[in-house]
Every structure is written in C-alpha cells, then in structure tokens.
Design a protein around this nucleic acid. Sequence first.
DNA 1: CATTTATAAATTTTT
DNA 2: TTTATAAATG
Length: 706
Amino acid sequence: MSAPWLAELNDAQREAVTYGDGPLLVIAGAGTGKTKTLACRAAYLVQNGTDPERILLLTFTRRAAGEMIDRAKFLADDPAVQNIWGGTFHAVANRLLRQYGRAVGLSADFTVMDASDAADVLNLIRTETGAAKSDRRFPRKQTLIKIYSHVVNAQRPLREVMEEHFPWCADDLDAIATIFERYTERKRASDVVDFDDLLLFWKALCEEEQIRDVICERFDHVLVDEYQDTNSIQAAMLRGLRRGNDNIMVVGDDAQSIYSFRAATVRNILDFPDQFPGTHIVKLEKNYRSTQPILTASNAVMSQAKERFTKDLWSDRTSDVKPILVTCMDEDGQSKDVRTHVLDHYEDGVALQRQAVLFRAGHHSAKLEVELAASNIPFHKYGGLKFVDAAHIKDMLAILRILENPYDEISWLRTLLLLRGIGPKSARRIIDELGVRGRQSNGHDGDPGVATPSPLRRMIEEPPLVSPAGREGFAELRLALADCAGTPLPSSRAGKRTLRKSKKRKVASLATQIERIHRFYAPICEESFENAGPRLRDLEQLAEIAAGYKSRTRFITDLTLDPPASTSDLAGAPYLDEDFLVLSTIHSAKGCEWDVVHIIHAADGMIPSDMATADDAGVDEERRLFYVAMTRAKNTLYVYFPLRYYHSRYRRGDGHGYAQLTRFIPTSMRDLFDHRTLRVDDDDAMIDVPGARDRVSASLKNLWRE
DNA sequence: CATTTATAAATTTTT
DNA sequence: TTTATAAATG
C-alpha cells in the first residue's frame, strides 16, 4: 500500500518513514525535513494498521506534538490519528501517573508544582533547618533547585554534580543533602510532585515489573523528537519503556544540542545504537529550508567548534543574497533598524508572521518591544518570563490549589501570607493547626480524608484562632473557601450568610470557583500592587481559559505543564487570524522556521552569554545556539550588532561600553555576509562623534582632581 | 514578639 | 523587577 505523499519524500526520508520493526536512529540536520519525516512516519504506521492509541510521540513542547499530529492526520486522512499519545516527556509522565501512579504511592489527583513553587518549598526548608543563618552565605533557592534538578536529570550523585557544576557550594554539601532529603519527604507527604519527580516516578513505574509490562504493552511504537536534547533519566525511561518491544524511533541533530543546562547530553544520541542493539541509522542531509548563502555562513560558524560531528548542510536553493550583518549605533538604533527591515519586507508581501526576531535572553527584546509598540506593529513574544510566573496569577492559583489538594502546604502558605496581619509565624501555626502536615500520621495509604477531616474541612468547620490584626482577612478567606467547596459554614452566629441556601450545596463549578476566588482576591490585589489594573485584567483572562475546562485538575495541571507563553496567548482564537511579528528566545525557536529572521544582540557577552564563556564546552553550546538561530531562516537572515551598550540599568553613572561583534563571526568570515549600516533616522539625526562622550566625561571628572 | 516597611543587591536558556 | 536582609512599628 503506497500513499501518494510517500512519493514526495527523498530516499532517506522514505527509508525512515517506511522502516519496519526495531530501533531506528535518524540523524537530521537543520531544515532537512525532520518534522515532516516524523509526521509521515506516524501517518504511515496508522495507514498500515497500527492503532493510533498505541503510538507514543514524545516531543519537546506540546505545541510541536500538536503540529505533528495535525500533519499526520492530514496525511493519513484519518481523524483517528488524533488519538496518538503525544506530548512532552513531562506531560506524558503526568498522564501515565494519573493512571498507574498508585503503584508508586501517588494518588490520582496529585498536584504538580512548577520550578518556582519548588524553589519556594526548598526555601522554606532552608530556613527551617537554619542552614541559612550560618555566618557563611548559603546557596539561594534558585541555586538549590538547579542543583536538585541536575542531580535527578543527569542521574548522578549529588557530590559529583556539585563538584563539577557548583563548586562554590561544595562546603555546604551535607546541609544541602539534608535539605533535599526533607524536600523529598515533604513532597510525598503532601501528594505534590515537581517537574523532576514526574520523570523520576515514571522511571520508578518502569522498575516495578508488573506495571512496566502493562505500560510496555500499551505502545506498539514510540517516536521521539529532538533526541539530542534529552537527558540521561529520559534515556533510562525509554529503555524501561521498550523492554520486550524495541520499536523505537528517535530523531535528532547533535549540532543543535542546546539544553545542557538541563542536563541534556549528546551522549544519548551517540550511544543510542549501543543502548538499542540492532539500531538502523538513517541520515538526512539535504536542507530544504534555507538558501545556500545562509547555509554557507551557518556551516562556517559550526566549523569553528572544538567538537564537531555533523557534515555541512547543502541546498538546491541558490540565491545571490548573503546574510546581512547590520551594524547599529546602540540598542535603540538596533530597534529602529529591525523595525525598518521588518516593514520593508512586510511591504514586499512577507507577512509579519513569516518573520521572527530571535535573541539569547528574554529581556534582550525589551527595547525592541517598546519600539514596536510605539510603531503599532503587533508582536507576540515566546520564551522569557511566563504569564504564570506573575505574582497575581500565582496567588489565584494557590487558592485554587488548596481546594484541589488541601495538603498542599506551599499553597496554604502563599495564600495565608496574602492576608494582612498574618506573617510567616502565624501562617506556620495555622498550617500546623489545620493538620496540613499531619497526613502521614493517619496511616492508611492514599486515603487521608476518612480518619481525620481534611485541612480544608477543618478550616471551614473549626478554624484556628487568629490574632486581631489578621482576623478579618482570615474570615474572608474562610468564606471564599467554603463557597468554593460547597460546604456551608457551621450555623453558629457566623453562619447567617450561608443559611439562605439549603444545607446541601453542590461543589461549585470551576468557573464559579474562579469567580468566587476573584471576588476574594481583587481587593487584595488592588491593595498590594501599584498596577492593579492590568493585573486584574490578566485574572479575567485566566477565568476565560478556565471556561474551556470542565475539570479543575486538568486546568491546574495544564497551566503548570504547558503555561501560556504570554498574556496575549490567552486570548486565543480572536488573535489567531491577526498578523503579528514573532519575538522569541533562540531556545523557544527550536524547530521553527521563518522567511525572514532577525538575530539581535550579536555581540560578545550576549551571544555567547557572559555566563557561559568559562569553558570550551559552554562556548561551544553558545555556538550551537547561534547556529540554531541562523538556520531558522528560509530566505533572508539579518544579524544585528549594536556598537555601544549603556549599562546603567542597575549600576549608577553614565557607564557605557563599546561592544565586540560576536566571536562566532570572526574577521575571516566577514565576506560571507553583506554589511550594512543604516543612517540614523531623520528626527533623531544627531552628529555623533565617537569617543566624545568619554572625553567630556573625563575632563569633567578631572576638574576635581589636580 | 510578629509583622511591615525600608534598603540593598542581583538578574540565561525551559519542562 | 524581584528578593534577601535590616530597621522600625504595632
């Protein structure tokens, strides 16, 4: 049986798509049709009789999984393709654990916390153990979560990880080990898992023989995208998943490995044939995306790498247009130049959506965003600070989480601290009195609510006493929680309000709960934030996404595992058909392509980031990052380099410095680019004399010395 | 004594 | 703009 679309593939692609049973490794350079190959493979399998529900497709983002499945659905012309199990490792772990988690001690409605919640818990323990108040400086919470995460993801002993990646914390090894121990206990007791636990528990599932067999049995084929960015625990999970059935296809490109900070290792892709004996290898080398001049420049960048595996990319797409290196006066000049170029292409018929601005770090686009807003150019930013990281969103979600899991200590803490008159000490006492931590003591596994009333019920029925200062807020919170839980307050003198309704109320719908929490939270929000307006609007949008969910568990979990990239993302459909320019960190741009790509801040210190230049491995990763950015471009590539940076944001003074062009474009490579310096725009035309500012500053300073 | 407010310091990349 | 520590307040 041969589908018409098979004919459109090149030989290597078709070989991968139609490969039979057994392990398959596809080495696919940038733009060589990796996504297409995976989508076709899925379609091919379904057309040849594999049940879509028995195919597992692991990708790096949920978006990627969705796109691939849509594509496969179109190719196979079969709506059932929708039933393929697709998603990130973490999302799939979540799904498996909701189903089989009991075997490893998780209830079906455990809560997932994101990295910043995890950091908060660690911080809590850090203060409790008193490690923080030793005379020496102790690692901060972000550092702690980084260390913890690295240990889990790299599957290496704490000591080694600390010596290698966090040598400055080595003195605190014992204290840190203690903190992690307690952290683990605490999470188990409260039925909460962090991102790393999702992987850890999946792996644990694979180690329980009976469960493993059930899970292995579940999938006929496993397909994995971006294999170069998986880490060693993920490789272990895959091995566990494929015992007794070695139908596994992994796709990746070692030249695009950019997640070593998350313990990803290219060893996974290199060792794959050893891990899975009998692996067949297919290489995709022909690039269909970019024009040859763009590839030539990209290849040149990679050729300087210390370690190098991949061959040069080549393409049929000839062009006279080289990538363009734009030298700008300063950051503002850069923003203006980008705007000018974007509009030029737009007028030539390249929609904004077909263009992207890429940068190393989330905040690199700040000035540009201002410029774009001023010019009324709509844009959409991926990466950087997440919507859910905003304090007001986290506050709302914390309250919702209490309802979801009354043993979720950190959510109680966050919620109680919102109340005026209640600080850490009182919050701690209330949490203890509610029995949030007393869960283990009532013995029977997984079913705490029977013996002792849950903390939520206690909160409603026999609330702890609170000092006069916090009493009012505490009462408000109690009312809100009672309304959401659908439990009337006990009909003492405080019960007037609830008596109007009949005694047995149903648990409020998700939308109603959100609305009720909003009513409780809005005054607090207005009191504690200067800019309450936009924040309250965010909360209304939160309510709007919630409207799309029936299950509270689903809503909270989805928001944690796949947070909306930005505020405008939440608006969903109405914005979809509008045109907007894409702004993205290079990391978030992985796997994407655009007609025109603008890479900004191509200065040493930005790319490569100052943080990463300590060793060769770090610089090489930054180089791959730059390579990934360049190879996103189909037709036109701009690389912008601001000559001058003012670094006065946090430091005082008029400090500015002259930047160096990124080391990834040395002089020897300059003729692979066209060079351009835009004139300063009319209205801010100003004669600039290089160095004048310095000379004047120096002479002013010297007035007082001499 | 607990909480709030003032002050100083530090900021990559993501599930 | 957020986050840890110090001083001030109730």
